[in-house]
Amino acid sequence: MSGDSKIGAVGGIGRTGPLRKVASDATASLSAAPQIQPAQDNLPTARLSRLAGSLADMSPPVDVARVATLRAAIASGSYGVHPAIIASAMLDFHSGAE
């Protein structure tokens, strides 16, 4: 190929200065890194025990009146199951719709 010597550097960019030494900068930053301190216990055992006790003393989030109504309807045979409504609610739940 006779014309290759006339093209010049590929991309037209040539290095004009020396390469910088990145490795020495990285080594200096590693030696200056702060020492890692062990994590302190933010919630001592006594505090966690009190929290667990207070949660155990709380009543569960159950609507007792609604449960009694449903039990009575099931016992009397008046509770109706509607598969289409249940299926629609399941699809809404799993698709993210509310």
Rank of each mutant, 00 (worst) to 15 (best):
P61E: 13
P61I: 07
P61F: 06
P61L: 12
P61V: 10
V62A: 10
V62K: 08
V62L: 15
D63W: 08
V64R: 12
V64L: 11
V64G: 04
V64D: 08
V64Q: 12
A65H: 10
A65I: 08
R66M: 15
R66W: 09
R66Q: 15
R66T: 14
R66G: 13
R66P: 02
V67Y: 08
V67G: 01
V67R: 06
A68H: 11
A68S: 15
T69S: 13
T69I: 11
T69V: 13
T69W: 08
L70F: 14
L70M: 14
R71W: 00
R71A: 11
R71I: 06
R71C: 03
R71T: 06
A72N: 08
A72W: 00
A72P: 00
A73I: 01
A73D: 11
I74R: 03
I74F: 09
I74G: 00
I74N: 01
A75H: 10
A75C: 07
A75Y: 05
S76K: 00
S76H: 03
S76L: 03
S76W: 01
G77E: 02
S78T: 10
S78R: 04
S78V: 03
S78E: 13
S78C: 02
S78Y: 01
S78K: 08
S78L: 05
G80H: 03
V81H: 10
V81Q: 09
V81E: 07
H82I: 06
H82F: 04
P83Q: 09
A84S: 08
A84G: 04
I85T: 09
I86Q: 03
I86H: 02
I86G: 01
I86V: 13
A87K: 06
A87W: 00
S88Q: 15
S88I: 01
S88R: 13
A89Q: 09
A89H: 08
A89I: 09
A89Y: 00
M90S: 07
